[in-house]
C-alpha cells in the first residue's frame, strides 16, 4: 500500500460502445495539487466522476483514500469535497440554507452546521447575500458558493471539475486565491482544466489526457522542458505568406510549427533566433519572443484540430 490518496491502475470507463477512459494509471499524493488537462472529450470528467464515487468503473483498480469506491462509496464521499463542472446549487433554497442543508447531508449536527455556514459565507465573501435565493447571484458568486459548499465537511480531498470556466478574470483570481489557501492548509486538490495558465498557477503535478489516455505526466516545468523549448519566437506574416519563409528560418529552431498566419520557432534563445532571421532577410509583419507555456505543450501533445 502506498500513501497515495488516489491510486488508479488500468482504470477504464465505457459508456456502451464508447470508451471514455481507456486505461489510466494515476497516483495523487497527500497535499499536492494534481491536474487533469486535456481537450473536451479526453476523459477528464469521467475520471473525476469515478474518483468521486459517483460512476462505477468498468475495469481496472481504483482506491480513493485507501478505500474501494465500489464498496465504500458513502464513506469515501464523506471525506471528499466536490465542485462539479456546472453549478448544481439548490435553487429552491437561500444561500445560507444551501450550506446548511449540504452540511446536514454529511451528518453534521445542527449547531456545527450553523457555525460552519457562517464561516463559509465569510470565506466565499457572500455574508451579505446569505438570505438571498441562489438564482440572482452572479456566475462568480455561484461558483464561490459551490466551492464553499464543497468545504462544509472539511474534506481531505477536493475534486474540482473546471472550477473557473466561464468566469471573468477578477472572479478567477479570487477563486485561485481561495484554492491556494486551501492547499496551504494541507487539502489535496485534484482539478481538471483546459486553461493552461490555471494549471501552471495551481498544479504541482499534472497529466495530459487525450482520447481517454494519459499522454504526458509531470510538473508544469518538467512538461515544458520535455515537450517544448524554453522560448518561442512567433513570426507573424500576412496570411498565406508564411509558407514561403519557412525554409529560411527552418534551421534556426529546434522545432518549427506553421499556422495560417505565422511561424512558431521553438528555441532556447528567441532573441538570437529573431536577429538571425532578420539577417537572412526575413521580414515578418510583427514578431514576438515569449516564454514557452503549458499551452505549447498541450497543443503539441493533443494537436490543434478541434476535438468535438
Amino acid at each position: 500500500m502506498s500513501d497515495a490518496l488516489v491510486q488508479a491502475r488500468g482504470l477504464r470507463k465505457c459508456f456502451g460502445d464508447i470508451e471514455a477512459v481507456s486505461g489510466i494509471d494515476v497516483d495523487v499524493r497527500p497535499g499536492e495539487a494534481f491536474g487533469f488537462l486535456g481537450p473536451n472529450g479526453a476523459g477528464k470528467s469521467s475520471a473525476m466522476r469515478m474518483i468521486g464515487c459517483v460512476s462505477p468503473r468498468t475495469a481496472g483498480e481504483l482506491q480513493v483514500l485507501g478505500l474501494d469506491p465500489d464498496v465504500d462509496g458513502p464513506r469515501i464521499r464523506a471525506r471528499l469535497g466536490v465542485v462539479p463542472q456546472q453549478d448544481n446549487l439548490d435553487t429552491e433554497l437561500s444561500v445560507r440554507d444551501n450550506l446548511h442543508v449540504y452540511g446536514r447531508y454529511f451528518g453534521l449536527s445542527r449547531a456545527a452546521v450553523r457555525a460552519k455556514a457562517t464561516e463559509l459565507l465569510d470565506f466565499a465573501q457572500l455574508t451579505d447575500r446569505a438570505s438571498d435565493k441562489v438564482e440572482p447571484l452572479s456566475g462568480g458568486m455561484k461558483r464561490r458558493l459551490t466551492i464553499a459548499r464543497s468545504l462544509v465537511n472539511d474534506p481531505e480531498l477536493m475534486l474540482l471539475d473546471e472550477p473557473t470556466t466561464g468566469l471573468d478574470p477578477q472572479a478567477r483570481h479570487l477563486l485561485w486565491d481561495r484554492l491556494f489557501r486551501l492547499k496551504q492548509q494541507g487539502v489535496t486538490l485534484i482539478l481538471t482544466t483546459h486553461y493552461m495558465d490555471e494549471a501552471e498557477q495551481l498544479c504541482d503535478r499534472l497529466v495530459v489526457m487525450d482520447g481517454g489516455l494519459i499522454v504526458a505526466e509531470g510538473s508544469p516545468g518538467d512538461l515544458i522542458a520535455r515537450y517544448s523549448s524554453r522560448e518561442v519566437l512567433e513570426l507573424r506574416f500576412a496570411p498565406g505568406e508564411q509558407h514561403g519563409q519557412r525554409a529560411a528560418v527552418d534551421e534556426l529552431a529546434e522545432r518549427l510549427e506553421e499556422l495560417p498566419d505565422r511561424l512558431l520557432l521553438y528555441t532556447t534563445d528567441g532573441e538570437r533566433a529573431l536577429s538571425a532571421a532578420h539577417q537572412r532577410g526575413v521580414r515578418p509583419v510583427s514578431s514576438l519572443v515569449r516564454r514557452a507555456t503549458l499551452e505549447d505543450v498541450f497543443l503539441r501533445l493533443t494537436g490543434r484540430s478541434l476535438v468535438d
Partner: peptide, 14 residues
C-alpha cells in the same frame, strides 16, 4: 433540470 440529485450524490447519501 435542477440537477439537485447530482449534488446530493456527491455527499454520503445514495
Amino acid at each position: 433540470y435542477a440537477r439537485l440529485y447530482d449534488a446530493v450524490l456527491a455527499t454520503p447519501l445514495g
